[in-house]
Design a protein around this nucleic acid. Structure first.
Lengths: 163, 163
DNA sequence: CACGGACCGTTGAAAATGTCAACTATTCAT
DNA sequence: ATGAATAGTTGACATTTTCAACGGTCCGTG
């Protein structure tokens, strides 16, 4: 709510609202793109902070998750799914592989492609990291009922996977 | 499409789904953080593409929006609201100011601070850009009813503005 | 079978973003 | 009046993004 609207009017100056609270009600506060950017920034920061204790970031966590899930993705599929350039996937996997959390295996069906699988160690670390990630997610959505939580996931999926 | 799925099948492995479609049902497909990252990436790309015709990006559009909204934010408030480093806000405003879309005015209540206001030209450009932005948003959420659309915005606001 | 075009992963460079410390001018509490 | 804190700015540095090029492999066609 704009405090200025309570009073006669700003001449040049209006009540300076404290902090950024006044901006939440601006047009941007109704802009879905902006809300996504900001929600994403906060969520990512929280996730990265929680994953740091496992030596992971959101990126490497995602790669490890897909490897541990026995989806056996190729690097190209990884890149597409995570919306990263293939060269970034190389660096991500290089790191995980050096730590023996993950292995590249030549896809027998296409020797150009590498398929990614998690080691036992990788699966174990992922399980622990997943607990942290879930705790963060619940913390962020503490103000929301489980049904709303699921509804949010559903709607985000629509945006994340159009078509 | 991987032809391998046409044939009987290897051994340990599960059906190799075509492309990245199989990955959508992995654990990550239920991870809110991941969905946010991906939805954000797609939405941002669409928004930037649409805003490019006005010489804006999501960032500069947001700054212009707040300036045009007569919220009279200081640069620090802008930085906090947009979750940017204050130094990035400087560059953003420098650009908009050079294009005479926006002006810095010393805050009479605190001469250290600059307050941002849009020029008439800035307001006119913002109005046009906003039309593009809205069209994009509607396009992305074409599969969703207006009520669900509003519910999504509401839930995202909870994430974007905790407390 | 051999060719050409497309695709996979990899490398390295260039551009854009993000992060941080230092500095000036100003405010504010005491 | 003085010192601590804050707003904006600058410049350095790290990280991330984007792109073009290259060797190896696949596939359809002749």
């Amino acid at each position: 709510m704009k405090l200025a609207t309570i009073f006669g009017m700003p001449r040049p100056e209006k009540l300076r609202s404290a902090g950024t609270d006044g901006l939440r009600d601006s047009v941007l506060g109704r802009d879905l793109s902006f809300l996504l950017v900001r929600a994403n920034a906060l969520t990512l920061a929280a996730a990265n902070a929680a994953l740091a204790e496992h030596g992971l970031k959101a990126r490497s966590y995602s790669v490890l998750a897909l490897a541990a899930d026995d989806a056996r993705p190729t690097q190209r599929e990884l890149a597409e799914f995570l919306r990263l350039d293939p060269s970034q996937v190389v660096a991500l996997i290089d790191d995980l592989e050096k730590r023996r959390l993950v292995e590249r295996r030549i896809d027998p069906a296409d020797r150009r492609a590498n398929v990614l699988i998690a080691t036992d160690e990788g699966r174990a670390l992922f399980a622990r990291a997943q607990d942290s990630a879930r705790a963060v997610e619940l913390g962020l959505l503490a103000a929301v009922t489980p049904e709303e939580h699921e509804r949010l996931a559903h709607l985000l999926r629509l945006l994340a996977f159009p078509g």
